Computed example of a mutant assay.
Amino acid sequence: MNISSNSVVALTYELHTTTPEGNQVFVEKANDENPLVFLYGVGMMLPKFEEHLTGLKAGDEYSFELSPSEGYGEIDPAAHVDLPITMFKEAGGELPNVGDVIPLQDNQGNQFRAGVTGVHEEFISVDLNHPMAGKNLIFSGKILNVRQATEDELSHGHAHGIDGHSGH
């Protein structure tokens, strides 16, 4: 079966980015023992990532590069905010440190992460850009399995494992 809408894909991958000097930097991978399994065509993955996989089948290898605009976007210099330090003290935990990635939630309940760029007496400065914003994403890997999604997977909007039986 070839990868198309409403199919469940299991694959391995290695993700690299590049430095300004052009050197590749390893980011993460999924291997045969712990593959990435997803429902294709429902918006779970980057659209250009899926586009590069369209039509492939089990056993096919792939390699491609996504520009920042095809991945997580360019870095937005305005995506920096200062959060009141009382917000962290009221939560009862320790104050974050520069370099920490902290969980946040917007007014609509959407959860996301922000990188701490400064800790000050009155506020914590955070960067709301995705950690991969502004970076080229270099993917390579192999398609392990492609199958038709089950009705449950389609109604739930996500894959239930490589065999369709790993539930909630």
Rank of each mutant, 00 (worst) to 15 (best):
N107I: 14
L11W: 01
M44F: 06
P68F: 08
Q24E: 15
H120N: 12
P84L: 14
K89D: 00
S155T: 14
Y40D: 14
H160M: 03
H52T: 05
E51F: 09
F64V: 03
H80D: 01
T117G: 02
L128D: 05
E74K: 09
E153A: 03
N34H: 13
L154R: 14
D127Y: 09
V27D: 02
F64A: 03
G71T: 01
E121D: 13
K135T: 08
E90Y: 12
G141V: 02
P103M: 09
N129I: 06
P47F: 12
G161S: 10
S125Q: 08
I162Y: 04
G59M: 06
G134Y: 01
L39P: 01
G141Q: 00
V37S: 02
H165R: 14
S5Q: 15
E21G: 05
D60F: 10
N136H: 09
G22W: 07
F112S: 05
G73N: 13
G167A: 07
S4F: 08
Y40A: 15
M44A: 10
T117Q: 01
I143P: 00
H168P: 00
G109I: 09
V81C: 11
K29I: 01
T54C: 11
L95P: 04
G109Y: 11
K48E: 14
Q105G: 06
D100Q: 12
D152L: 13
L144F: 06
G118Q: 10
L95Q: 08
E121G: 06
E122M: 08
N34P: 02
E90S: 10
E28V: 03
H16M: 11
I102G: 05
L46Q: 15
E21I: 02
T54Y: 14
I75D: 00
F123E: 07
K48R: 13
L128N: 04
A78Q: 09
N107P: 04
Q148D: 11
Q148L: 10
G43L: 11
R147G: 07
V81E: 12
A91F: 11
E90T: 13
T17Q: 04
